[in-house]
Amino acid sequence: MLRVAGRRAVWALPLLLTIIVVMFCLLRAIPGDPVQAMVGDFPVPPAYRALIEEKYHLNDPLPTQIVTYLGNIVSGDFGYSYQNQRPVIGLILERAPRTILLASASFAIAIPLGLLLGVLAGTARRPLADKLLTTSALIAYAIPTFWLGQLLVIVFALQLGWLPTQGIGPMISRAHGFAWILERLRYLALPALAFAIHEGMRIARISRASVIDTLGQGYIVTARAKGLTRGAIIRRHILRNASLPVVTIAGYAFGHALGGAVLLETVFAWPGVGLLLVDSIRLRDNMTVIGIVIVSAIAVVVMNLVVDVVYALLDPRIRTAR
């Protein structure tokens, strides 16, 4: 089990290095003044310019530049955002927990929801019920998250006034303790719901396929031959075995969500990594853009490793193999 994860980890390193090198080369491939490309739409005083040229060895050959840049990244220096007047890594670390919160809340809803729908559809006695569920999931999955977000805001925030429209919390808050948590939850509700519906439908489709695959296995026949009730078969024999591939897909999707929640964060002005990415692109703050790309690649790679280990823990065939 650990060998599988270990092999993955060994491959993860060159993968990340490649991404970093490619990103740096892309940055250098932007036509025009390299310093301006790094700084973005921001006037560069000559003193700054000299500093940057020296730091990134811009007057040396490209390989030297790449090695220098790699060294910086490894030591945690993702560059400086002149737009925000802060180091890039600090910006990202400040935003990351909010994105993780949003993604976690969404997946906490999406995984049970998706599994439930998938099991219901996959085990449905009547084909019509399956068709109905599957088609609904298909349509719901086709809804772009950002549009769903807008509709939720229009209905629940603007028309009904139940929940706040945007942001992560009120400008000024006097709430403490439990009341503070409740207040935050009200802000989290709509973005998490929009995200959860989308991801939940994806998980539902995968779960259904996995359930159907499990239904074809011999041990389901054995379970029926034992005279187990339908509920017992689903609980004891289908749910666990069918959720194994779902764990994998959901884990990968979670890794991607950490960087990919761009659209959703924009709708709800949720100040996470995604919104930072969009803002940085608009301001041509390329150091930050590249920093985010590298960090989200790291997030994906780490999540994939976690998934591998979790999968191995859930499947005794891998767990007990040496």
């Binding site: 993968l15 991404i19 990103m23 892309l26 940055l27 491939a29 932007i30 991607h256 969500a257 960087g259 990919g260 761009v262 659209l263 990415l277 969009v278 940085s280 692109i281 041509r284 390329n286 853009v289 590249i290 985010i292 790309v293 989200s296 690649a297 994906v300 790679v301």
Partner: peptide
């Protein structure tokens, strides 16, 4: 496949 599609696309468009 390591990078989320939307991040990849945004990054390319930014550049």
């Amino acid at each position: 496949q390591t990078l989320p599609a939307i991040v990849l696309v945004l990054c390319a468009i930014a550049l």
